[in-house]
Design a protein around this nucleic acid. Sequence first.
DNA 1: TTGCATATCCAAAGCGCTTTGGTAAACTCG
DNA 2: CGAGTTTACCAAAGCGCTTTGGATATGCAA
Lengths: 339, 339
Amino acid sequence: MNLKALSEHLGLSQTTVSRALNGYSDVAQETRERVARAAQELGYRPNANAKRLATGRSSIIGVSFPTGRNMLVDPHFIDFLAGLSHQASELDHDILISAIKNDPGEAYKRMANKGTVDAMVLLGLYLNNEILELMHSLKLPFIVHGRIPSDASYAYMDIDNHGALYQATKLMLQLGHKRIANLDGPVNQSFSRDRAKGWSDALGEAGIKPCVEYLCHGNMTDENGYLFAKQVLALEEPPTALICSSVIMAAGAYRACAELGLKVGEDVSIMAHDDDLPMYFPEKMDPPLTVTRSPIRAAGVEIAKMAVDLINGAPIESCQKVWPVDLIFRSSTAPPKSA
Amino acid sequence: MNLKALSEHLGLSQTTVSRALNGYSDVAQETRERVARAAQELGYRPNANAKRLATGRSSIIGVSFPTGRNMLVDPHFIDFLAGLSHQASELDHDILISAIKNDPGEAYKRMANKGTVDAMVLLGLYLNNEILELMHSLKLPFIVHGRIPSDASYAYMDIDNHGALYQATKLMLQLGHKRIANLDGPVNQSFSRDRAKGWSDALGEAGIKPCVEYLCHGNMTDENGYLFAKQVLALEEPPTALICSSVIMAAGAYRACAELGLKVGEDVSIMAHDDDLPMYFPEKMDPPLTVTRSPIRAAGVEIAKMAVDLINGAPIESCQKVWPVDLIFRSSTAPPKSA
DNA sequence: TTGCATATCCAAAGCGCTTTGGTAAACTCG
DNA sequence: CGAGTTTACCAAAGCGCTTTGGATATGCAA
């Protein structure tokens, strides 16, 4: 069942049927209804590819997907993707994923050249100035999850990573902690660097010199949380507070403390940034975990909206957002014991 | 730069240029090379949507993506998706994901009707006879990851879940265990039921009546592994062996044992099915975990291949595979202490 | 009555590719 | 040498939609 058949069935022209279905004003109300009814009854579905060819728009948003064996398939990415894809379908758009093997630039070019997608979502993880230039040269709207320092203007959506660690560190300071460790994400990622800066800025303001031994970088896994915690707690002067970049890491840190016979929320204070991942519940941990919180899934939702705006011609300047994070106090944080 | 411009530039017809580029035989070798060079130099990229309209094929494979808040975004699914998407791009196909909110059938219909995809990959998780009928009525090739018992013939790829638990249970029996618990996946999923059957079949052959208290069903999370282990180990007659449906669960079970002062590989034997998830390393656990193993990512790779075959007209019967699983013995399993 | 908006509808021209059904020239071979 | 093959190319007809640029009919003011 195609447009031609439907219009013949109705005794109307293809033009009118098309315009009726697409809500144009120059078609009588009665006709519009008649067309809608017939389309429904006959199960007419416009052919997406014909529509795409005619309009030059695909209503597909491309996302690069790091699948190489050496890259971690990260639960954070997945939850982000879930939000993105869910919202995209609300807005009648589809999500096409393109595997990044090694070179992300190559994957982006592939996606852009085929004209399959109207816009692309890039992971901040792979962003650098070179990629930014490449993207601009591809003449395809794109939006970045994350940020990098750059002169060029581009659409992005990020959470306030600096603020998150700044707040967290400030809280620990206010509780009386002086030795505050930062179990951070991978060193090559901008969000990790932003967080590290927030941490050291807060310390600096309190007149404390950030100690390099208190700063760990690595993938945000349970195991790293465990290892890093063990590592810093074994120092000559162990920290009394740990700030983890993810609830996953915090779970590992809890384990480390348990093994060392340290009571979380008493002997050592722990907090984390909570991306609200579906399988991790900071409020159910023992003790419940204090967090800075910003659901990564919501970021996916927002980016889908922004991508569609961008496709519809919104200026780049209106597509640059930084979300603040919430601070949720629970019992894993307390004044240091010695205080 | 489109076909018309390119052909004019070359002083050839569109037909010849198109055929040259697509490797048809009725074009002179010299011309073919000239065309290829010009296309390269001018950066000509055929418009994907025009091609799709003309050929009726999109080279896109659709995958349903469970994103609803109530559904777990499961690491297993993600690794599967990574394999699928990686292989699809090797075969010059793209992956389009369609969010399942609540009703999977509705999502499938949406995807099929638009004609955007050439084939669909369904998750066994959502499969039932009703869905199967729906899919057949949609006249779109599809392939299922998993299986259900059904009279209808359909393309599928599954691992031998029955065999996995059969083997695992058999191993425990051979070691001398009599009380063997099965910490299984969600009760409504076919792979969980297959595994439960493998477990009870092996027990049955050994003349042991499967005890319902030893069978737990639930999402394959760390927490459930912990809870289920605690639960069965607290029974009047606790099991001496635990078989977990996932390494993630096994990690939880290890924790439970540690808390109870039980040494894994001595006081209690544990094994698991290993999907080879990127963040979990059974061989690095303490003690290293005995597993039945079948990388779920490889299943994704295989399904991408099968989907492309199916699109190219391969008969359904040639697209029905069940993979055996490996049994890898490590030190988390040993004869029971009392034996 | 005439002139001019306004409301409805339509024929036909694309969108950029593939594919059918040729043609003309060059080659084969009895 | 002429009939049949083979080789290399092409014009034009789609694929199924949107959109442009009218056409026709009706309503209303002058």
